[in-house]
């Protein structure tokens, strides 16, 4: 018999719990400390290596060459906030913020560019690497042939081959 009216017990539960919904956007939303939002790239630390563009699953990070500059372009519209780029960046230039209120009616608000100066090949003139990346490699690799550092990969192969083929 008591079983038949058990369903009324939901009322005391509701009164004990109170109201759990929040009046967003007039109340603040709840995000925990681990929440992953949009990323932020530190232009000072980024060397333009492109590791993040290779791991990004939806290709939100891309490397684009426009004239003399290499641009690391971050498009929030494609970002899935996985944070793989932050894990993979060798310079730890990418931080994950808690920003998720990113809606806008201007699409260029969603693009963030980090620009890098490009180094020109001494022989053929193609722009092949960011200056910062070249400097970084020079500072890490101790035994670096300085004379061939500023050659693009193609020219470097040709130069190395010609030196090896030249009889002493």
């Amino acid at each position: 018999m008591i079983d038949m009216v058990k369903f009324v017990k939901v009322i005391p539960i509701a009164s004990k719990v109170g109201t759990v919904t929040i009046r967003y956007p007039y109340d603040k939303p709840l995000v925990t400390e681990s929440f992953r939002g949009a990323i932020e790239i530190d232009p000072a630390k980024c060397v333009g290596c492109g590791a993040c563009t290779r791991i990004c699953p939806p290709k939100a990070l891309t490397l684009v060459q426009e004239g003399n500059t290499l641009i690391l372009r971050y498009f929030v519209g494609r970002c899935i906030f996985c944070g793989m780029c932050a894990d993979v960046c060798p310079e730890k230039a990418i931080t994950i913020t808690k920003e998720f209120e990113l809606a806008t009616d201007q699409i260029h608000d969603l693009y963030t560019d980090v620009e890098h100066e490009l180094v020109e090949c001494e022989r053929c003139g193609t722009k092949f690497v960011a200056k910062k990346l070249l400097d970084k490699v020079k500072s890490i690799v101790e035994v670096l042939p300085e004379d061939r550092a500023k050659l693009c990969p193609n020219c470097r192969r040709l130069e190395t081959l010609s030196r090896a083929a030249t009889p002493r």
Partner: peptide
């Protein structure tokens, strides 16, 4: 509907827990 609302109310705590542990409510990544 009352059952629906209350069931999802207690489910919300699990979603917040998942976000605390992994960084996202559903697509944990």
């Amino acid at each position: 509907d009352t059952g629906f609302m209350h069931m999802w109310r207690i489910r919300e705590n699990v979603m917040i827990l998942a976000e605390l542990l992994t960084g996202s409510r559903k697509t944990y990544g």
